[in-house]
Design a protein around this nucleic acid. Structure first.
Length: 110
DNA sequence: ACATTGACCGCGT
DNA sequence: TACGCGGCCAATG
């Protein structure tokens, strides 16, 4: 595939997300120094399954803790299922205790 | 090369 | 508090 540096950066951060934690598109974009390119992060996630090694895209949600990208999974319920399997509870399409399970990529970079 | 789109974010009403 | 709208940047046709 494209092998674009931008995508690789996004995947790299996403792979650092600890099990049982989640982060937001904006946080990843910010850690890359492109806070205004948060949309690109989500866009890149569409190709996450095509990336190697595997990228835990299910641990990435929007800034509200909403699972906006669940419909891009196969099947869509797979996202909640995997999150729940890791201890992250999803209620009404959003992550419960989002602020608590939220993981800041900046901490790992620093 | 131009126009459109998108797994978002933040502000304004 | 809830919904709408524009902006941002890269990829795709």
């Amino acid at each position: 595939m494209m092998n674009t540096n931008f995508y690789e950066q996004v995947y790299e951060i996403a792979r650092l997300i600890p099990k049982g934690r989640v982060t937001s598109y904006g946080a990843i974009a910010k850690s890359l120094g492109a806070a205004k390119s948060s949309r690109m992060v989500g866009y890149a996630m569409r190709y996450a399954e095509a990336a190697h090694p595997k990228v835990p895209a299910h641990r990435v949600v929007n800034s509200s803790g909403l699972l906006t990208g669940k419909f891009h999974f196969n099947p869509p319920e797979r996202m909640e299922e995997q999150l729940f399997n890791e201890g992250v509870v999803v209620k009404d399409n959003k992550v419960v205790n989002f602020k608590k399970v939220f993981w800041n990529p900046m901490e790992e970079i620093f």
